[in-house]
């Protein structure tokens, strides 16, 4: 049951920030409400003012570099090769569903679209937003883990101006971010992988929310995928692990030991990388499982994610049928 509140519907970010600044702790930014309204119903949050950010220009858009103007290529032309450095911007109020169906996302960050297809369930995807997901910093979020491998940063606006913060710094811990109370999460920026990259995202767990999630991206020294064989050596690797610790983390040491390895013969390197990744996580005993089990599952699924990414790089259909696991 929801307690009464006043609903504000600003049309500009400045207006919204002014409201948040004025109302302070008594207010909350509201977009899809799938997390916020849930917490309010459970009595965990009791804001008396909700500031609806969905009408703010640009907040509902997906574009290249800046979402504030429709400067990105039209979806029809979006299929071209990535131009290095052009970032994909997803407005805070874009729903998971819109991400799943966006041609631009599909062209620039295809794995993001695939992962969006598996967030929670179809009703949550239809309403829940990327911004809300990141701003709540639920440790069992899918997006944050994946976004870490895309050098994500978030754009925060406040009466004091705008600032951009790496996602890794924005998410501080469970339900804790670097957002000041008068700041608004406006967008997330993703740096698409170079064209010679193959990737995978795997989540595992029997509960409503995943026990663990792994995102892995391998950049090769040549083209990837069926019919474009040529790349074999890994020149760059990104591995992120989420849900098991207080916040999702990149596994830098694991990434390092993948560089230079061959995707055709990845087993040893993948095993080493997955063991390193597992050693680096900080799980706790909770209803999702014991710490040692979760650590071991990190090793298993980092290895599997790397195997899937490597298979994709080679244009081979990977084995993706694991019980209680979703592969994107």
């Amino acid at each position: 049951m929801l307690r009464p509140f006043t609903l504000h519907r600003p049309e500009t970010a400045d207006e919204a920030c002014a409201l948040l600044a004025r109302l302070g702790e008594d207010s909350a930014a509201y977009a899809g409400g799938t997390e916020l309204l849930l917490m309010m119903k459970l009595g965990l949050l009791r804001p008396r003012h909700l500031v609806d950010v969905k009408r703010i220009r640009g907040f509902g858009e997906i574009g290249l570099e800046s979402h504030l103007g429709p400067r990105g290529p039209s979806p029809a032309t979006a299929g071209g090769a990535n131009s290095e450095g052009t970032r994909l911007t997803i407005g805070a109020a874009v729903t998971h569903r819109a991400v799943e169906r966006s041609a631009l996302v599909g062209a620039r960050c295809p794995l993001v679209g695939s992962v969006a297809r598996h967030v929670a369930n179809v009703r949550v995807r239809n309403v829940g937003t990327v911004g809300g997901n990141l701003a709540f910093a639920d440790p069992h979020s899918d997006l944050a883990t994946l976004f870490l491998t895309l050098a994500a940063s978030v754009e925060l606006v406040s009466p004091r101006g705008r600032r951009e913060l790496p996602l890794a710094d924005f998410v501080r811990g469970p339900w804790e971010t670097a957002r000041a109370s008068d700041e608004l999460l406006a967008a997330v920026r993703l740096t698409p992988w170079a064209g010679d990259t193959a990737a995978a995202y795997v989540k595992f767990g029997v509960h409503e929310r995943p026990t663990l999630a792994v995102a892995a991206a391998l950049r090769l020294d040549g083209p990837v995928g069926a019919g474009r064989r040529g790349g074999d050596r890994i020149v760059d690797a990104r591995v992120a692990v989420g849900c098991v610790g207080p916040k999702p983390e990149r596994a830098a040491a694991a990434e390092a030991c993948l560089r230079g390895a061959s995707v055709a013969d990845l087993e040893d390197a993948a095993r080493a990388a997955s063991d390193i990744a597992a050693a680096g996580v900080d799980p706790a005993d909770d209803l999702y499982g014991s710490a040692d089990y979760k650590r071991e599952m990190v090793a298993v699924f980092v290895r599997r994610a790397l195997g899937i990414a490597a298979a994709r790089a080679r244009g081979v259909a990977p084995a993706t049928r694991f019980p209680h696991a979703v592969v994107a």
Binding site: F204, M297, V300, F322, P323, H324, A325
Partner: peptide
Amino acid sequence: VSVDEETGAIR
């Protein structure tokens, strides 16, 4: 049944 021996998940 089958079992994913690495995770213990039964199908």
